[in-house]
Measured scan of single mutants.
Amino acid sequence: SAEDNLGPLPENWEMAYTENGEVYFIDHNTKTTSWLDPRCLNKQQK
């Protein structure tokens, strides 16, 4: 699965689903949400 390739979410991040079944990500560090997987963003920065 995609999660196996990317590994676990960063600390204090949570994956959630909208009512429509779309995946989004919650950053409890900054109390924000994102459509972008933080694991993908980390890979792009390196």
Score class of each variant (00 low, 15 high):
residue 1 S to V: 04
residue 1 S to M: 08
residue 3 E to C: 07
residue 4 D to M: 12
residue 4 D to H: 13
residue 4 D to N: 15
residue 5 N to E: 10
residue 6 L to W: 07
residue 7 G to N: 11
residue 7 G to T: 09
residue 8 P to Y: 06
residue 8 P to A: 11
residue 8 P to T: 11
residue 9 L to R: 02
residue 10 P to C: 00
residue 10 P to R: 02
residue 10 P to L: 03
residue 10 P to V: 01
residue 11 E to T: 13
residue 11 E to M: 10
residue 11 E to Q: 11
residue 12 N to G: 15
residue 12 N to A: 10
residue 13 W to D: 00
residue 13 W to P: 01
residue 13 W to M: 11
residue 14 E to T: 08
residue 14 E to N: 07
residue 15 M to G: 04
residue 15 M to T: 08
residue 15 M to W: 06
residue 15 M to A: 10
residue 15 M to C: 08
residue 15 M to P: 05
residue 16 A to D: 08
residue 16 A to W: 03
residue 16 A to T: 06
residue 16 A to C: 08
residue 16 A to G: 10
residue 17 Y to T: 15
residue 17 Y to M: 06
residue 17 Y to N: 11
residue 17 Y to C: 11
residue 17 Y to V: 11
residue 18 T to M: 07
residue 18 T to R: 05
residue 19 E to F: 06
residue 19 E to M: 13
residue 20 N to K: 15
residue 20 N to D: 11
residue 21 G to N: 13
residue 21 G to W: 05
residue 21 G to S: 11
residue 22 E to H: 10
residue 22 E to N: 03
residue 22 E to K: 08
residue 23 V to T: 12
residue 23 V to K: 15
residue 24 Y to T: 01
residue 25 F to K: 00
residue 26 I to R: 06
residue 26 I to N: 03
residue 27 D to C: 04
residue 27 D to R: 00
residue 27 D to T: 02
residue 28 H to N: 10
residue 29 N to H: 11
residue 29 N to C: 09
residue 29 N to V: 11
residue 30 T to D: 06
residue 31 K to S: 08
residue 31 K to N: 07
residue 32 T to C: 12
residue 32 T to R: 05
residue 33 T to S: 05
residue 33 T to P: 01
residue 33 T to E: 03
residue 34 S to P: 00
residue 34 S to Y: 00
residue 34 S to M: 02
residue 34 S to R: 02
residue 34 S to D: 00
residue 35 W to D: 03
residue 35 W to M: 05
residue 35 W to C: 04
residue 36 L to K: 12
residue 36 L to R: 09
residue 37 D to F: 03
residue 37 D to N: 04
residue 38 P to W: 00
residue 38 P to H: 00
residue 38 P to M: 01
residue 39 R to Q: 02
residue 39 R to G: 02
residue 39 R to K: 03
residue 40 C to Q: 14
residue 40 C to M: 15
residue 41 L to I: 11
residue 41 L to N: 15
residue 41 L to D: 14
residue 41 L to F: 15
residue 41 L to S: 14
residue 42 N to R: 13
residue 43 K to E: 14
residue 44 Q to M: 07
residue 44 Q to I: 04
residue 45 Q to P: 15
residue 46 K to F: 09
